[in-house]
Write a protein that binds this DNA or RNA. Sequence first.
DNA 1: AAATAACTCAACCGCGCTGAA
DNA 2: TTTCAGCGCGGTTGAGTTATT
Length: 558
Amino acid sequence: MGRSTNESEESMVLKVQTDSPSIDEGSCGGSMNGGVVLKKGPWTSAEDAILVDYVKKHGEGNWNAVQKHSGLFRCGKSCRLRWANHLRPNLKKGAFSQEEEKLIIELHAKMGNKWARMAAHLPGRTDNEIKNYWNTRIKRRQRAGLPLYPPELCLQALNESQQSQNSGEVNSGEKRHHDLLQGNSYEIPDVIFDNFKANQGALSFPSALPDISMSSMLTQGPGSSPNYSFMPPMMHRPKRLRESEALFPSYNGSITNGFPEFEQFQGDNCQKIHRPCGMSFPYDPDPSSKNPQHFGGHSLLNGNFSASKPTPGSMKLELPSLQYQETDLGGWGTSTLLPPSLESVDTFIQSPPPTGTVQSDCLSPRNSGLLEALLHEAQNLSSGKNHSFEKSSNSSVVTPSDVVDSSSLNLCDTEWEEYSDPISPLGRSAASVFSECTPISGSSLDETTPSDIIPGSRIKPETIENVSTPDGEKEISNRSNLSRPDALLGTDWFEQSTENGNQSVVNDAIATLLGEDFCNDYKQVPARSSTLPQGQGWSLGSCAWNNMPGVCHMSELP
DNA sequence: AAATAACTCAACCGCGCTGAA
DNA sequence: TTTCAGCGCGGTTGAGTTATT
């Protein structure tokens, strides 16, 4: 049997080699492995047959050996993926059943983007399948303005998390690889913590703009209740990046709306943005945790932009889609009009409704599920231990005027103090600082007249005609442009700081945050100059942003 | 019918973890 | 203790398909 198998295998190998584009087209992108050009791209049936045969004979694992011994011109990774996703037995094909869909939703609420774990709960399904399904679901629901999680699930998760907390189970961050599968699927505490670990960057520094953007909005359909507020971690960042990239060149005004779906998000979400929460490390027993996930670049990996420790070259500078707004900093305090598209982006960055109580920051669980968000919220509401958070939380319940008049200032003081502290982990992203400190300003600068943003003016009520608000809510009228990296330097806080001669303090703090060299590399132009041409009203606070790949330097601006 | 947009899904990439050397 | 290879995971990409204009 072995002989015949080997013979058939050899013949297949021959066929594969013949068919292999990498052989025929060495330049098609295959990687070199020991002088062999490894094939990439879709698998052929012949390759599948070889792989199946090989695995049957040798079992799974040792995937690199597959390439060496089977004659497949595929890297081990590719073989493993092919086997796991398509060739292994008992794989289910076709659409998810309703039960499966329900389970996925539940699992995602608990686990976040732990696709492999989720897949373990769904026999015959692969992580990739689930991931794709979820991404599609997000898009679909987002487009439809539906919450991602059903409200009952939110409540359930909240209850479970509270029970878990009460029983003191939420602990032990070292349970890194607790096998959820070995327990019941509702082992909340561990799940929570696993997610927390995976996402603590987001939890700790929840205000990173990228997360604000999508996560806070996606679930917010018209009339959604706060229970809907918990957002999936997963967003279509590729889209976002592409959009950003596409938008940059045309920031001068031809930006197209890359975020039509944002328009539906408003109200409850926006107030969360004001929630000062990033400093509390609510789940971290040790705020000075060495866990790199807390700080700097790693948060970037989670989609949390961090400029706290600029480490060029090491940072995966995944820019929030909002960054292109930052390129509009020139419009800050100027008469520059933002392209209409931006308003939709900003729609989710809104001030609280006039009477809104602060809810958990919808941004927090970047990469986590509903449960983390719920837990985070619960923690935020009950915790006052962390000094900074304590300060911040004083501003937690805010009215718009609170936000503008006092909270922002106080918060900023707090935040900058934090950043000025060399010992401070500086774990939070600059974006989070911005978001926490910045009174959310209106986004629709395109609809803003210069008089709307004259220095000293409070957060301007903005017209939102172009923002689709299905239920006609008015909450979004008070908005600050959180997405602006220099938003922190804008509005009253900046005004007061500078008027009081504190600009140097501000700059120092920024330098501390961003790194002086980091900033010095860039042009400094008068901030908020109303006379500068569009795109040149850059403030110091913009430096870090400018330094991000894909972000226009001033010198690069048209 | 053609063009375009939106969607789906397979595959790739990069990172981090783990265990063996 | 350090290094390195193997592996798994999550995120991202892009080609193919379907829907819409």
